[in-house]
């Protein structure tokens, strides 16, 4: 490995040949299919793709939080040191924080905000009083003028936007260097979406340097992310900056053309079923420019422009 590549591997999250297979009674389902990619330090990376393309599974694999019936192959590194489910657990909260999807389901309905926020502060090993104070500070920092009342409240007493901010506060409680935000705007209305964007940006004031934002909300990705990874059927097809402005992969192009503001052109065909593994490029059956080779071989990672990686034979 060259020096530059080694350096790149050290700073940030690197994934090598990562596969996640769910062993289900109905058969194996491959949610993440031999993904090799890199999320650079100090940047906000957007992991975009349709629902069910495996982006959330990839995120949970990084945190070591997949259910026991998931089998993980391949390697993951954070700043050069391996991330296994065991080592990942030690980093949770302190080095990598999670902002989970669907705020109303992500707070424990039977516990107060105070209990859940203080739990998030446990890795700091503070005394009870200091922890309480820190919880209050966090809530004020995330836009709650009256933290006392929020601390005593149960999740169902909060609005969706408030729940989201509480979860952001909990995710950033121990000032992790990385934050993984899983579908932060899923199910929220437009006003709340822009609020979430502001909240995520404000995370940088809490010691968070780098972020991985898993989303299918392209406006959010466009305004928030420095660089992007496009996932389709368990694979990362395109990676780099300026992807939405200048898409290189035929999938990314079709994906953007299908957006309402770009004319709602629907993509022909259907996405591969969960668990279906094609020998070639997963997008080949729907691709307008596919050649026979696309159906037989996996395209390699190409770099037609500096800072961009795309898996398509047209750039080989």
């Amino acid at each position: 490995m060259t020096g530059a590549a080694e350096q790149q591997r050290i700073n940030g999250i690197t994934v090598e040949e990562l596969s996640v297979i769910f062993r289900l009674p109905e058969g194996d389902v491959c949610a993440v299919d031999s993904v090799s990619t890199h999320f650079p330090e100090g940047k906000i990376t957007g992991l975009i793709g349709e629902s069910g393309c495996g982006k959330s599974v990839l995120g949970l694999a990084l945190l070591g939080l997949l259910p026991p019936y998931a089998s993980v192959a391949g390697e993951m590194y954070l700043d050069g040191s391996p991330l296994t489910p065991e080592t990942a657990r030690k980093r949770l909260g302190t080095e990598i924080g999670l902002i989970p999807q669907s705020p109303s389901d992500s707070l424990n309905p039977a516990r107060t905000v105070s209990a859940q926020l203080q739990e998030a502060l446990l890795p700091l090993k503070l005394g009870r009083k200091q922890r309480m104070m820190k919880a209050r500070e966090l809530l004020s920092a995330f836009g709650f003028p009256e933290p006392e009342r929020i601390l005593r409240a149960y999740p169902h007493e909060l609005s969706g936007g408030m729940q989201q901010r509480v979860l952001c506060a909990a995710g950033a409680a121990c000032s992790p260097r990385w934050i993984l935000a899983d579908e932060p705007t899923k199910g929220l209305d437009r006003d709340l979406r822009s609020q979430v964007r502001e909240t995520l940006l404000s995370l940088r004031e809490h010691g968070v340097k780098s972020m991985l934002v898993i989303t299918h909300d392209l406006p959010l990705a466009r305004s928030l992310c420095d660089t992007m990874a496009v996932m389709y059927a368990g694979q990362v097809l395109e990676l780099g900056s300026g992807i939405l402005e200048k898409p290189l992969h035929p999938y990314t192009r079709s994906f953007l053309a299908a957006l309402p503001e770009n004319g709602f052109q629907s993509m022909p065909g259907v996405a591969p079923k969960a668990g279906e593994r094609l020998p070639g490029c997963p997008f080949a059956p729907r691709c307008p420019i596919a050649v026979p080779r696309c159906h037989q071989e996996r395209p390699p990672a190409c770099s037609p422009e500096p800072g961009k990686t795309v898996r398509c034979f047209q750039y080989v």
Binding site: P67, P100, D105, L167
Partner: peptide
């Protein structure tokens, strides 16, 4: 309860197995 989103969120705080069971999942 373990399969629910709030348990994943709680685990992402780096808590122990017992804390997950007794403090998070059991009350529900």
């Amino acid at each position: 309860e373990f399969g629910k989103q709030y348990c994943t969120a709680a685990m992402a705080r780096g808590i122990s197995r017992w804390r997950l069971v007794l403090k998070n999942a059991l009350p529900n």
